[in-house]
């Protein structure tokens, strides 16, 4: 950042907006602090990982999750009251899914935690729909030539989450241990588990 957009300049303008809103009786500083604290608590990729681990260990849950993601994550207490629809897309031996929001940054925040900067970047948004295999390789995910890749473009109404493949050799693991293997990037589709 440089020139007019220096961090100090924008920080000053944000503070001035807060002061003005307080002076005009629109929003108190205390209420703003409360909302800032609340907005990040409860949003974490650990939530999405829990959903994945349940789907890996409970075939009935997996079916419900793929049929109606919104209802299935609600069973675990997530996205309660949300007006958005969640669609969960499953990776298989020969198909891979990856999510993007080409228009902005739509994303299932509660299940994935705050989105990474690259998800919001023009480079990712413009390229992953055009050359997904190349972009995934830049993340270190080299997929076999025969793997079909589907890119899901999010909208204000519909959010996506990837159900990664359960790694081989994890038959003996419990739900909690399985959840610990699932990363945020695996839920976006830019990594495998």
């Amino acid at each position: 950042m440089s020139g007019d957009h220096s961090d100090a300049a924008i920080a000053r303008r944000v503070r001035r907006m807060e002061t003005l809103l307080e002076e005009k009786g629109v929003l108190s500083g205390a209420r703003l602090d409360e909302i800032i604290d609340a907005s990040l608590s409860g949003a974490s990729p650990a939530n999405g990982a829990r959903v994945v681990a349940r789907a890996w260990t409970d075939p009935g849950y997996r079916r419900r999750l793929l049929a109606d993601g919104t209802a299935a994550v609600r069973e675990l207490g997530f996205m309660e009251g949300s007006y958005q629809r969640l669609r969960v897309v499953e990776n298989t031996a020969d198909t891979h899914n990856v999510i993007v929001c080409t228009l902005c940054s739509c994303y299932p925040l509660r299940l994935l935690g705050p989105s990474p900067s690259w998800y919001k970047s023009e480079a990712y948004r413009s390229r992953v729909v055009r050359e997904p295999r190349t972009v995934l390789a830049e993340f270190g995910l080299e997929l076999p030539a025969g793997t079909e890749i589907t890119v899901w473009d999010s909208s204000a109404e519909t959010r996506y989450m990837v159900l990664p493949r359960r790694p081989e050799g994890t038959e003996g693991l419990g739900e909690e241990e399985l959840a610990a293997l699932v990363t945020r990037n695996a839920l976006i589709g830019t990594a495998a588990v």
Binding site: T102, A123, S126, R127, V128, V135, E138, F139
Partner: peptide, 15 residues
């Protein structure tokens, strides 16, 4: 903002 499919934004900074 409708950047999907456009060319020229360079590599993704995956950090």
């Amino acid at each position: 903002n409708d950047v999907g499919g456009t060319v020229g934004f360079g590599a993704v900074d995956t950090a």
